[in-house]
């Protein structure tokens, strides 16, 4: 079929469909969605599991996927606090029985893991399916989502090692979520007519007899936000304070290396730190490894363009086709020269 007749046919179909919508107050605006279009986008899964596609995945299958796609950010056991807060930890067998996370009541939780918070298993299925892995969202098949979730639940001791999670048993597993009874909607901050829970009165004169300084900013915190003098206007009733990090620096701070901007713009910094490993290796570790390798420059340019995995662990680097040849070459040169920041 010619391109023109294809277009014509599509146009007729859409026109016919639009004609079917008699109620629209805005003739000619919008059109009915086709069943395939709704199916392609309507991916949400509710707590009653409306929207959940059929499928299944075992803990064992989950381990393999996890190592390949999840470990870099979340650690082998979902415990990592390096990139995101931990997924697993802080829940007990008793919590699974009661549906309340005891750590909150005892107030002994140093940090809240995902499994300590999430009341509904549907939430995790929905989110992994729509947004994971971090650098390739929506790339997992339904069975893979079941498998990854089965492994995560096993890490939280919610299901045994030989478990297979499926659309048939997921509602039963939801009844074992450690914080399933830990949520409340009894507050006035959702409903449009909701009433506040905290009250003050607008006293105007002699309101307190004593004023206690409860908390003030330690110097290190004041100085951790750059030179405050550079974050205020240079005219007016006030100036920003000179703080230690930038003291004397001011306008004289050396300009950042142009590659810094290019690196952020090209999306490299989502996965690579200059001196620290994130998803991928740090730039300086790369420079160190290829220090004496004359072919490294062209080899790495190729790897950025095509993507790859295995050199630095299992985390895959997707192809970076959106970065131009010139930008890729400039970035690789900069990385191999030790990634100078200025």
């Amino acid at each position: 079929m010619s391109r023109f007749s294809e277009l014509l046919l599509a146009g007729c179909l859409i026109a016919a469909a639009a004609g079917a919508s008699a109620d629209s107050s805005f003739p000619g605006v919008g059109r009915p969605a086709t069943p395939s279009e709704v199916k392609a986008w309507d991916i949400d899964v509710r707590p009653d599991f409306k929207g959940l596609p059929p499928g299944k995945g075992s803990v064992d299958q989950g381990i393999e996927l996890w190592e390949a796609k999840c470990t870099a950010c979340h650690g082998s056991f979902g415990e990592s606090n390096e990139v995101f807060t931990p997924l697993v930890g802080g829940t007990t067998k008793e919590d699974i029985e009661t549906g309340r996370v005891g750590a909150y009541i005892r107030q002994d939780a140093p940090q809240r893991s995902t499994l300590m918070k999430v009341p509904t298993l549907s939430t995790l299925w929905d989110y992994i399916n729509r947004a994971m892995p971090w650098n390739a969202p929506k790339s997992l098949s339904p069975d893979e989502v079941y498998a990854v979730l089965a492994y995560l639940l096993h890490l939280g001791e919610i299901v045994p090692a030989d478990f297979t999670l499926s659309d048939k048993n997921i509602a039963e597993v939801q009844k074992r979520m450690p914080n399933r009874n830990g949520m409340t909607t009894k507050h006035g901050m959702w409903d449009i007519k909701g009433k506040p829970d905290v009250k003050n009165v607008a006293c105007m004169k002699n309101c307190k007899t004593q004023i206690t300084m409860g908390s003030s900013l330690p110097d290190y915190a004041r100085d951790a936000h750059g030179n405050l003098a550079d974050q205020n206007r240079v005219i007016g009733a006030v100036r920003g304070q000179q703080t230690s990090e930038g003291a004397g620096g001011g306008a004289a701070a050396p300009a950042p290396h142009p590659a810094m901007d290019l690196m952020k713009k090209s999306g490299c910094s989502g996965c690579h730190g200059i001196a620290s490993k994130i998803l991928g290796p740090s730039f300086r570790d790369i420079a160190k490894r290829y220090k004496d390798d004359k072919g490294a420059e062209s080899q790495l340019i190729g790897r950025v363009k095509a993507g790859g995995s295995g050199t630095w662990g299992d985390a895959a680097m997707p192809p970076q086709a959106h970065v131009s040849d010139a930008d890729t070459a400039a970035l690789i040169k900069w990385i191999l020269s030790g990634s100078p920041e200025n």
Partner: peptide, 24 residues
Amino acid sequence: QPWATKDEAVHYIDLMPDGTHRQY
């Protein structure tokens, strides 16, 4: 029904002194 999405069930929930989280 409400959806209890990630940003309604893991984040943007308010931890109260009694150990419950306020949702939504």
